[in-house]
Design a protein around this nucleic acid. Structure first.
Lengths: 128, 128
DNA sequence: TTCTTACATAGTAATCTTTATAAATAGTGT
DNA sequence: ACACTATTTATAAAGATTACTATGTAAGAA
């Protein structure tokens, strides 16, 4: 557990945003001026393997990383890319249905809702 | 509607796979030796805008494209990347719940199940 | 302490997918 | 034939992520 590794994990735990690798890199470069981007990626991969962190890919943009606390889903703003958590009963049923229909051994599922966040809604309304 | 455009659309309609842009490019390069990769991307974007085709991003790999017939969900094999359709009643409820909880104006959602396809299951069993 | 081993990091090059750009081409209507 | 528009080709460029190599650093054994 190096200082860099600790700082990256700490950032993910304390910040409740869903940062990209570059977000983390920029945020920590003040404290670690010599830190490499590769270090951020390396550690994120380690965290992911251990199950501490979840990687989320949205289209062409950068991956975002989320410290795993409890099961929750994400809603993403199409305009600004902001990610917000929301709670919803976990959809276990769909996994068993999918397994029966396809013969797959199911491991997990991924559900995301897309739309426009309140801030971007008002901004778009003012433009009309 | 150029020959290239028609061929790309035809490929998406007839092949029931979920090809990447490169899959399409390779598959059609025999018939169109001079076709550019950009043409594939251009046309896929056009089809997407019109709503004929859906783009799907899975992690770091290339996007996959699916000709839109009816509403269905996808299950993806972690081992070989194969994508299979399965039918499940559309989850409209989660959209309204998410909207109420977060204040977002909801546009759509995305649900995918991940696991291991039958072929890869047997292959993994034989390796033990 | 000193040597060894293993692993983390920094720095940079390379890869891969996708987009942007500019020139060439073809089709349509006048 | 001419002008207009959209499409294609070819290539450069962008952006995110990974690969690679050398350096550093901590822990353990002799």
């Amino acid at each position: 557990m190096t200082p860099q590794r600790q700082a990256i994990l700490e950032y993910l735990v304390t910040e409740h945003s869903h940062p990209t690798a570059d977000d983390i890199y920029k945020a920590l470069s003040a404290r670690f001026p010599n830190m490499s981007v590769a270090t951020v990626y390396n550690n994120l991969r380690v965290f992911k393997e251990v199950g501490l962190v979840q990687e989320m890919n949205y289209g062409d943009a950068s991956s975002r990383f989320d410290f795993v606390t409890s099961r929750h889903y994400h809603i993403i703003c199409d305009a600004c890319g902001k990610v917000v958590d929301f709670n919803y009963p976990v959809l276990d049923e769909i996994e068993s249905v999918a397994s029966q229909l396809t013969g797959f051994k199911v491991d997990r599922h991924r559900l995301e809702v897309y739309g426009t966040c309140p801030a971007c809604q008002t901004e778009q309304a003012h433009k009309h």
